[in-house]
Design a protein around this nucleic acid. Structure first.
Lengths: 340, 340
DNA sequence: GTTAGCACTCTTATTTATCGAGTGCTAAAA
DNA sequence: TTTTAGCACTCGATAAATAAGAGTGCTAAC
């Protein structure tokens, strides 16, 4: 069965009506908002065809039709008219995001907040990562006779710290040795190279000081690892409660959002914008949700992303341009902050 | 009406039964688990008295009785038999918490996790604060021509950082000036003294460099402020969904937990252990919840707290000793980590 | 190809009936 | 004076019956 122009019009109308109301849409109601003048029976026939083609489905025999994943996909790829953010909206977004200017984490937090508020969805964002970031600075600060804070700063501007315990007392010599090893072995090195292999050879080379020093370098390697795996920020997760169609899945969905790892993976794509509808998601917790992820560039290279998560009936026509706008805005502002 | 010994027995049995089952408890059911041999009619009379005295109430005319806030309070203060954690439980808690040994944040996270898991409640914890903490170290790290990270480390081992933008290019002189001012004005100073007043006089004294340098010191003051207001960690909030009696309040309860400020205030008390039942809470979002907060000491002085939040029908006899055990454990481990 | 008409399906809401746990009261027993 | 058996009554919870309504698919005529 081929896709006629009329079928397209009807499909678009069904999708848009369902997105707006959340109710399965029947042939009669469709008549009102469709400019083609045919009877409801004709619409019914067409809708039956669209159902057979896999674009629509019925919750139950005597209900209206609801778009399937395929239906949404077709709508987004072929039928949708992008609705660019209004001048007023753009201004207001810019103002909110600019409030976080200066500090990347704060900036992304603000961006997440404004997205969550504007879209009524949960917003996620990842901090800018420099894949090829290097160690810029490593510090050791004793805070007790056997405890010290280890601090790592990367060339991408990420700062990580962790306290660390040694079995032996920390002396000024310990500190000196730490800095010596750091400046010869760590400073300027790409984070990725600081792995267990490197550590082993390093510790071996420490000789009699191995026992004393190794905890600090292990911690430093931990930090390097942390700095590589991008942090995920989450905002407005309670917005999800307002979407009834998520039903009891909200709970496991929130549980899923709380652990950042899968989200980080989800957001590590490279396409400008990535839209996953319901079953298109690889994680089963997202099976009833849609995800729109828009990546931002910092200084010309792919760096992080902003995303929203909500029910499948998102207002794609509006939200896709929104996300693109916000992410490019964030990219620009971050580029200002983190110069090369 | 005076409180007889039999009334006490009955009240305790009602509270315990309700805590166990969550169902309003009737006179007949009470007979089984009460060792006094009287008829259900007698129990009924006594329960009516207890209701009149304000310790029990009925959800509706023909239902069993449920403890009131007053009832719980009386039970906890006068009737409850503490149930100390078993040897096995203590071991398992120690093991979990010890996994975070070394880093205070990680340690409290682990403690929160184990508490949440063991109690089925949401767990909150505050990081150790040193009220009289001083500035131990302040660093400036340029990350762009006009941007720098400012890093603050306190004597209590807290580390805070924030990026900061200046209107003028950052030169080696900028950095040098920063360190000069820091070592003369900030290092060793109590965090509390770094307020707007101090900043104003400082900026005034900078003379021609005021424009160049002030953003950095403003940021530094921000960080000092941050370091003073204790961070709140939250674990297991999704446990709250399992308690049906919280009903739709779960959502606003979670919303409430997410913003840390009120929680921080809630946990800033000084008593060893603090139990607030339902309406005893000053925040209306907690009106249907109970809170058990147990403070821990680091090196002999009050420093932070661990708490659980759940429905009013908590197993107080078990959880109060649990929280005391965990918080004292955490205090000891932190004392090891953060020595004076 | 399109449409009016109609019987049919299935959900949702509303009403009605039934059940049972638990109470309070009374009057007798201890 | 306290305790107890007995009983009528209340009221929520559950289930069954009923009604309303939206929407469909099919048929036959246009």
């Amino acid at each position: 069965m081929e896709m006629t122009e009329r079928k397209q019009k009807i499909l678009a109308a069904v999708v848009e009506s369902y997105i707006r109301t959340g109710e399965p849409v029947g042939s009669k109601n469709l008549l009102n908002e469709l400019d083609i003048s045919v009877s409801s029976a004709t619409i019914r026939n067409e809708m039956a065809d669209l159902a057979e083609m896999g674009y629509l489905e019925q919750p139950h025999t005597s209900a209206g039709r609801v778009p399937t994943t395929l239906g949404y996909r077709y709508y987004i790829d072929k039928l949708m008219n992008r609705l660019e953010p209004s001048e007023a909206d753009r201004k207001s977004i810019e103002k909110s995001v600019a409030a976080g200017r200066g500090d990347p984490e704060q900036l992304l937090e603000k961006a997440g907040e404004v997205i969550a508020k504007l879209t009524g969805c949960a917003a996620v964002s990842t901090m800018p990562t420099g894949d090829k970031a290097t160690v810029r600075r490593a510090e050791i600060v004793p805070v007790g006779s056997r405890t010290a804070m280890i601090v790592l700063l990367t060339s991408a501007g990420t700062l990580k710290s962790k306290a660390c315990r040694s079995d032996m007392p920390i002396t000024p010599h310990t500190v000196e040795r730490f800095y010596n090893v750091c400046s010869s072995q760590f400073i300027g090195k790409p984070l990725e190279e600081i792995g267990t292999v490197m550590l082993q050879t390093l510790v071996a080379s420490l000789g009699e000081h191995a026992l004393e020093m190794s905890p600090f370098f292990v911690t430093l390697a931990d930090l390097a690892n942390d700095a590589l795996s991008s942090d995920v920020l989450l905002e407005g997760q309670s917005n999800l409660f307002n979407h009834r169609e998520l039903g009891n899945n909200v709970i496991e969905l929130m549980e899923f959002l709380r652990k950042g790892d899968p989200i980080a993976k989800l957001m590590s794509g490279v396409k400008d914008i990535d839209i996953k509808i319901g079953s298109e998601n690889e994680y089963k917790q997202l099976a009833n949700s849609s995800v729109i992820i828009s990546h931002y560039d910092v200084n010309g290279s792919r760096s992080g992303a902003l995303g929203i998560i909500g029910p499948t009936r998102l207002n794609y026509a509006k939200l896709i341009p929104y996300m693109q706008f916000v992410s490019s805005l964030v990219g620009n502002m971050l580029s200002e902050t983190i110069e090369d």
